[in-house]
Design a protein around this nucleic acid. Structure first.
Length: 832
RNA sequence: GCCCGGAUGGCGGAACUGGUAGACGCAAGGGACUUAAAAUCCCUCGCCUUUUAGGUGUGCGAGUUCGAUUCUCGCUCCGGGCACCA
């Protein structure tokens, strides 16, 4: 639509949308409370970070959610559909520095603007439940939960190696380290050992893994990603005595069956045993140099590709408890201290990485598992053999099947007291400490006398100091504020210091969905009654980029809150829909690519309804959506066609009877049938998989049929009852998608009630049935003719008709018919 | 490297448990209305050919079947996740 276009050609979306938005807001139409009469339905879209303005991804996400919410209301559910703001985070601090403002100011301004934008989209939220996670009334309860978790031993402090940027004076997350340098200032990142707070998510590793089976309403892909992330493996933990020291080296392996093939040992550069191995070691200097070099390389290559495997002999050895063999100990760059025990028994014959290492350092290779039908020669192997087989060179276990041997060897280790069955997870505990200002303060006090003290619950919330000076890029901002960190010990009353780290912002989003059920509750984090009524979330909708972290943390919090007595569910989200990205010109919309479409422009030009309609029509929700400006116009045209039809037929629609006549003529039958087919199609598309694109197509077809049969060139007179049936159903079926438009059109036809008082239509199976069928006739699988037959024809008669058809005769003439296949009501295939 | 997806006209996408491939929309071409434009309406629209018809066609190659976009096997390309996990 160009600006020179006369407005009178189009429906007046500006006035209409404003009118209905005001109406919904003034009447709090979408406010909900517990209702025992109606079944509850909780639909939730991932809440946004208030970055400034909404983008097309938000429009798509929230449009999908809004259709679900409105549809479920039509189906008679009591729908909880809340919205809020994930409003802590680093961008606010950066923006505050840049604009010489305060993070809170910047954040709340953004929230105000974006709330307005969401309202302009006509989203049916219960705004009374709005929450902002940076509000002390929200994070006080997060601090409260933290303290309860602390009490239960689910929160602890430990020293770990982190990415440290010296110029920014802060810890960086892995994804903020680019090629070994800080994403913001390009300073080289260092490894630094720091004390931080951790949530013991590993305590729930098994349950988080097992309960994945309960998530039948989640995309298989997301479940798999979580399963791999948790990464459970079972095997043997076994101790190897260190030669000449009163120490043992503990290893974990998933291949106990290969234990007789161990020819060396690889340990991590950070392994605690190294210190002891280096005492009085003639090679001490070389080993230390190696370790320092590897440590630096590791830090810089945290995000890059694999480096070559390297190691250094320590000069020390240990003993394989199964056969008494002496095993040299190497320090190797590929061994992770954070997984297993930080030491790996190396079996080069059956592990590719160990194989390469052995070749490089000329270490022996001993094959101990012989795959069926193959004779392994240790000296001639070109690569490791990782398949199962029969044990060889394995003492008492020789001849045993490798799968069987795993258990037998574990049993032996247990019996002899040097090992046991053990389960290891890839999942690590969740480090939540951030040296930032704009986050929820960790409610802990350090007292020189009494040590670590939790802040007493009655002193919550620990609020952020408001005197944040702007214009400074300071490190650990809370650490600079004595007004904040100076306090008194809750135990002895002496002067003490507050923890100055804030919590990872993922903590806020791990339980907000529960807080929505009782957003203003002041007694505890959650009102058990409300939470148990509304939860779990029936339908959760958001980007697949949160498939692991956010969704895993939320599942973890749900289990913790359950164990703290606040919830009675195991899993927070029954059904999950992960929507695709919004793409333009083949790549994701981004400022740097300059291919951003601003929702504001679209709303101004075509209105919210068209914007919603297109974002739902162009692709099914789970797929990426390719933006097409012309496609938007097509959607706008569609709405105008409906508007024009109703306007042109308003007299008949208002004055005529709204009941179907007793007998229908040809056109009426067709329209009536199409109407009911459309109801069935749309309902099915929404219920099955939220494929709104095909639902919209179906309504478009109905509108096409309507124009053809009842438009200007109509052939037969259409009874008003049939006409009304078609029109009213078009409006109800489209209402969840284009609510302002349908509300307005409905209001033109009805003075007494709004469209939202209507029930979702039910289709009539009888009306759907076609009385004539098109039967395909194939000869040797190729379509040769189409027959119009009455719907009740039997197979025998059908076969007869097909064999007599002129076009078919052409192809079977003079040939022997081998076989005739008749598929009821569908096709006849003649094989010659 | 491993684990998931995906590939259908000029484009976005349809096609129920194997049964008319290309619904719906966009773009394109032709026509009507108009002084003209906008808007609207009608027609055509996978490719090829000897065009009232026939051939061919759902990334490539096989297979199962009367019949495959759909099922099986083997590839190619694209997207995503994990990445020294012992």
């Amino acid at each position: 639509m160009s600006t020179s276009t006369p407005q009178e050609n189009f429906y007046d979306f500006k006035t209409i949308e404003k009118k209905w938005q005001d109406h919904w807001l003034d009447n709090a139409t979408y406010r909900v409370s517990t209702d025992t009469e109606k079944e509850k339905y909780y639909v939730l879209e991932m809440f946004p970070y208030p970055s400034g303005r909404i983008h097309m991804g938000h429009v798509r996400n929230y449009s999908i959610g809004d259709v679900v919410a409105r549809y479920k209301r039509f189906r008679g559910f009591n729908v909880l559909h809340p919205m809020g703001w994930d409003s802590f985070g680093l961008p606010a601090e950066n923006a505050a520095i840049k604009n010489n403002s305060h993070p809170a100011r910047w954040t709340y301004d953004n929230i105000d603007y974006m709330r307005d934008q969401l309202r302009q989209l006509g989203l049916s939220y219960d705004w009374d439940r709005e929450i902002a996670t940076c509000n002390p009334e929200y994070y006080r309860w997060e601090q409260y939960i933290f303290l309860e978790m602390y009490e239960k031993g689910l929160v602890y402090q430990k020293n770990t190696s982190v990415n440290w940027c010296d110029s920014c004076q802060t810890v960086l997350a892995n994804e903020q380290v680019i090629d070994g340098c800080c994403w913001r200032c390009d300073e080289e990142v260092q490894a630094r050992s720091m004390n931080g707070w951790f949530f013991k998510i590993t305590a729930y590793a098994d349950e988080l893994l097992e309960d994945l089976d309960k998530l039948g309403g989640w995309p298989e892909k997301v479940v798999t990603m979580q399963r791999n992330w948790i990464g459970k493996s079972q095997g043997l933990q076994c101790d190897f005595a260190v030669d000449g020291l009163d120490e043992s080296l503990s290893i974990f392996t998933t291949r106990p069956d290969t234990i007789f093939g161990v020819t060396f040992m690889s340990i991590a550069t950070e392994h605690p045993l190294i210190e002891k191995l280096l005492a009085n070691n003639p090679r001490k200097e070389a080993i230390e140099d190696f370790i320092t070099r590897i440590a630096n390389e590791k830090q810089q290559q945290a995000n890059s590709d694999l480096t070559e495997k390297e190691g250094i002999f320590t000069g020390c050895s240990c003993v394989n408890p199964f056969n008494g063999e002496k095993i040299p100990i190497y320090v190797a760059n590929f061994v992770l201290m954070g997984y297993g025990t930080g030491a790996v028994m190396a079996v080069p014959a059956h592990d590719q990485r160990d194989f390469e290492f052995a070749k490089k350092y000329d270490l022996p290779i001993t094959a101990v598992v012989s795959p069926e039908g193959i004779e392994l020669n240790s000296d001639e192997m070109a690569e490791a053999s990782t398949v199962p087989g029969v044990l060889i060179n394995s003492g008492a276990f020789t001849g045993m099947d490798s799968e069987e041997a795993k258990q037998a060897i574990i049993n032996q280790a247990v019996q002899d007291g040097f090992g046991s069955a053990h389960t290891t997870y890839r999942l690590r505990d969740w480090g939540i400490s951030r040296q930032r200002y704009w986050g929820a303060p960790i409610p802990i006090i350090y007292c020189d006398t009494c040590g670590v003290q939790p802040v007493p619950a009655e002193q919550l919330p620990v609020t952020l100091p408001e005197d944040r000076e702007s214009g400074q890029n300071e490190c650990a901002p809370l650490h600079q504020r004595s007004s904040f960190f100076t306090t008194s010990c809750p135990s002895c009353g002496q002067e003490a210091k507050r923890e100055t780290d804030t919590m990872d912002t993922f903590v806020e989003s791990s339980w907000y969905f529960a807080r929505y059920t009782c957003p203003r509750f002041t007694d505890s984090p959650l009102n058990r009654e409300e939470a148990s009524h509304w939860l779990p979330v029936d339908q959760y909708i958001g980007g697949v980029e949160h498939a692991i972290l956010h969704l895993l943390y939320s599942r973890f919090f749900t289990k913790v809150l359950r164990d703290l007595g606040y919830l009675d569910i195991d899993e927070p989200f029954t059904n999950l829909l992960t929507q695709g990205m919004v793409i333009k010109d083949g790549s994701k919309m981004s400022k740097s690519k300059g291919n951003v479409v601003d929702p504001n422009d679209l709303i101004t030009e075509y209105g919210a309804d068209t914007t919603r309609l297109f974002s739902l029509f162009a692709a099914p929700p789970e797929k990426d959506l390719e933006w097409n400006a012309k496609g938007v116009e097509g959607c706008f045209r569609f709405l105008n066609r409906i508007n024009r039809f109703i306007t042109n037929n308003l007299d008949a629609l208002l004055k005529g009877k709204r009941k179907l006549p007793a007998k229908l003529n040809g056109s009426e039958t067709q329209l009536h049938r199409k109407t009911h087919q459309t109801i069935s199609k749309v309902t099915g598309n929404i219920e099955q998989n939220f494929h709104f694109n095909t639902a919209i197509s179906a309504v478009m077809e109905l509108v096409n049929t309507l124009s053809a049969l009842a438009g200007d060139q109509k052939k037969e007179v259409i009874d008003n009852g049939v006409l009304y049936e078609a029109v009213s159903n078009i409006l109800i079926l489209l209402c969840p998608i284009v609510p302002h438009f349908c509300s307005e059109q409905w209001a033109m036809l009805h003075k007494d009630h709004s469209i939202e008082d209507e029930k979702w239509p039910v289709w009539d199976e009888q009306a759907i049935k076609e009385d004539e069928l098109t039967i395909i006739v194939q000869v040797n699988g190729k379509v040769r003719a189409k027959l119009q037959v009455s719907a009740d024809i039997d197979n025998k008669a059908l076969e007869g008709l097909a064999l007599k058809d002129e076009k078919v005769l052409k192809f079977i003439d003079g040939k022997t018919i081998k076989k005739v296949i008749v598929i009821q009501k569908k096709l006849v295939n003649i094989v010659v």
